[in-house]
Simulated scan of single mutants.
Amino acid sequence: MAEPLVSIADLKVHFTVGRTMFSPGTVVRAVDGVSFDVGRGEVLGLVGESGSGKTTLGRSILRLVEPTSGSVRFEGEEVTTLPPSRLKRLRSRMQIIFQDPYASLNPRMSVGQTLSEALELHAIGTRADRAERVGDLLEQVGLPRAVAQRFPHEFSGGQRQRIGIARALAVNPGFIVADEPVSALDVSIQAQIINLLQDLRQELGLSILFIGHDLSVIEFLCDRVVVLYLGRIMETATAADLYANPRHPYTRALLDAAPVPDPRKRRERITLKGDLPSPSAPPSGCVFRTRCPFAIAACAETVPPLETVGARHQVACIRAGELDLTE
Rank of each mutant, 00 (worst) to 15 (best):
A184G: 07
L185T: 14
L185E: 15
S188D: 04
I189L: 07
Q190W: 04
I193W: 05
I193D: 12
I194A: 06
N195G: 02
D199V: 13
L200T: 15
R201V: 10
Q202E: 15
L204R: 15
G205R: 15
L206P: 15
L206H: 15
S207F: 02
S207I: 05
I208E: 09
L209Y: 12
L209R: 14
F210H: 10
F210E: 12
H213Q: 13
L215M: 01
L215N: 00
L215T: 03
V217N: 08
I218Q: 01
I218E: 08
L221G: 03
C222D: 00
R224Y: 04
R224V: 04
V226A: 12
V226F: 07
V226D: 09
Y229E: 06
R232M: 08
A239G: 01
A240C: 02
D241S: 13
Y243M: 01
P246Y: 04
P246E: 06
P246G: 07
H248E: 02
Y250D: 05
T251C: 06
A253T: 14
L254G: 10
L255Q: 10
D256W: 07
D256I: 03
A257N: 09
A257M: 04
A258T: 10
P259V: 01
D262I: 00
P263E: 05
R264G: 07
R264I: 03
R266C: 00
R266W: 01
R266E: 04
R266I: 00
R269S: 05
T271L: 10
T271C: 08
L272F: 07
K273G: 10
G274N: 11
D275W: 12
D275C: 09
D275P: 07
S278I: 11
A281T: 14
A281L: 13
S284M: 06
S284K: 12
G285V: 03
V287F: 09
F288P: 00
F288L: 05
F288D: 08
F288A: 01
F288H: 06
T290I: 10
R291D: 12
R291Q: 10
C292I: 05
C292D: 11
C292K: 02
C292W: 02
P293V: 03
P293R: 02
P293E: 09
A298R: 13
A298M: 09
C299F: 14
A300S: 13
E301F: 03
V303P: 00
P304L: 09
